[in-house]
Design a protein around this nucleic acid. Sequence first.
DNA 1: TAAATAGGTCACAAGGTCAA
DNA 2: TTGACCTTGTGACCTATTTA
Lengths: 321, 321
Amino acid sequence: MCSICNVRVISGYSYGALCCGACKMFFRRVLFVKNIENCRRNGNCTRKCRYCRFKKCIKAGMTYTPTENLFDMNNTDSLSALIFNLSHQESHRDFQLNNCLFAGDPTVAELCRIQGPLTFYPRPINYQMNLAEWVFITGITSLDYLKKFIHVNMLNESDRAILLKFTFFDFSIFTDSMRAQNRNQEYISFPDGTDVIKAEVVGVTDNFINGIRCRLAARINELKVTKEEFLLLALVFFCNPALPNLSDSGRGILNSYQKIYSSALLQYCLLTYQQLGPSRFTDLLSVYQIIAKTRMDISYLFILNTMHRPCTGLKKIYVFR
Amino acid sequence: MCSICNVRVISGYSYGALCCGACKMFFRRVLFVKNIENCRRNGNCTRKCRYCRFKKCIKAGMTYTPTENLFDMNNTDSLSALIFNLSHQESHRDFQLNNCLFAGDPTVAELCRIQGPLTFYPRPINYQMNLAEWVFITGITSLDYLKKFIHVNMLNESDRAILLKFTFFDFSIFTDSMRAQNRNQEYISFPDGTDVIKAEVVGVTDNFINGIRCRLAARINELKVTKEEFLLLALVFFCNPALPNLSDSGRGILNSYQKIYSSALLQYCLLTYQQLGPSRFTDLLSVYQIIAKTRMDISYLFILNTMHRPCTGLKKIYVFR
DNA sequence: TAAATAGGTCACAAGGTCAA
DNA sequence: TTGACCTTGTGACCTATTTA
């Protein structure tokens, strides 16, 4: 039975999720026509609410990936469908980050074996999150977000684990910094304001710590990276064929899709910035260096920290060895 | 890894090239259905561009050779697939002739030892070609074109070298004359207009020189040889079992394939010219005499010329001893 | 008799169409 | 706007044929 409409039987996989033919067409139409309005009763609709039906599609992990038309400046339907899809996926991730908890402590490899979206459960109102919980929910919602894309699902299990393991943390840092920009902060912090660095860190300068908190956020503020740019850029960055130990076929898949995603970003830049498009494109790509630098600083800090006091209760998704 | 899709692993040789099963079926379907449109972005498409995928098949050297149905006038699928394939191979040769250079100076025997297509590199824009360069690129693109066919690949190395050595130049002359016809010229010349005969030739009459320039082109103009006829005719001419020193098995292979190719040409003539088909067929075959005459005139001219002034820098593919 | 390759078949997913 | 139905391209898998 189709998990979206609960009425018709599943016809097979469509846009990455098991659903019926009607819901497949519904999803496609919404992406291309974008004729959707907010739900009047804030979710929990019973029937016939197009907004809630679409949200169910997103929750079920439906993703649209264009394969052509990304060079045709007169046909931007595919690009705008992609962006529309991505922005709803990202809203869903943000909702989960702020309103959900995740039970258990799986490894990335275990998560890779799960078909379909991860299962979160509601966070009690006024639940007080500590630093470790913020770190975990940020990571696991990032994994859930990234796991949906077609290029991830096309990989074999081993390649998928490699890809997710070596990208989800970078993606988390990137979302943290976009949140900082949205809140007009020049440093990253968790949604409730919790500092991303634990208080008792020793052996490094304040300057170093502030680099972690601020470097990426500052650059993103400087460039005024838009939501759309962030969404496309994340696809380009984290569909990375250059990761070590990938199989040849996995590398081939990621290569092909990275080209698609960067074409989409380039088309977006050309449309939005006209003759300044190409330089904007390269400016955006350069952000990756700062993400990588920040990740390395954090991992240095982590190593230093565990030397002082052996780490207890570190969630398994953060075990990279 | 399949060099065409870069995603799946090679399943073996299919239609003369190493590729995966999916690309094999793709190639076959395109030949038989011809459901292909030009690429919007002129190459370098990522995935899902059927035109670019097919062009990659052609570049990889994929060739279809019918083995039956060439006598069944109600089933022309094989013939039209063959012609479709040949015309794309020929476009590729023409593209290389006009836009590429070849590095090195191999002998024909060395070229015969190379598996798969030869490697060309892009010719700089506005690069000025001299006569010797035109002669070389014409010869080497002809060799690349001829080398792909199944009857060539089935031969042992020695037979293959004999066949190519004694046919590629005739094929070049033939393509030169087809180009003359396309440009409404009554004489052959290289694509940029360079004369095929070097200026300082002495000891022969202008009449003799003009025979080389014009005789074949004139006959082709007179017969109004079509592209399709040229493509099939070239296969018949240059799958020649009568060459000296071939092994018995090589001779047998060439004999069988020449029959296939001439059946294809005959079927084409019968379909296109109805009751005039047989006479058209013999008219076309008679063109070979003129190719041979032109080749002999050129070689006489060459010998005469090297007697006056020893030849320096002659490319090794043109050393026929 | 085992391999390699040409060619056939079918279920699947993307996307289009049209009556309700 | 919807969803049943249709068309198309695809690729995994199968079979037939040939040759070492």
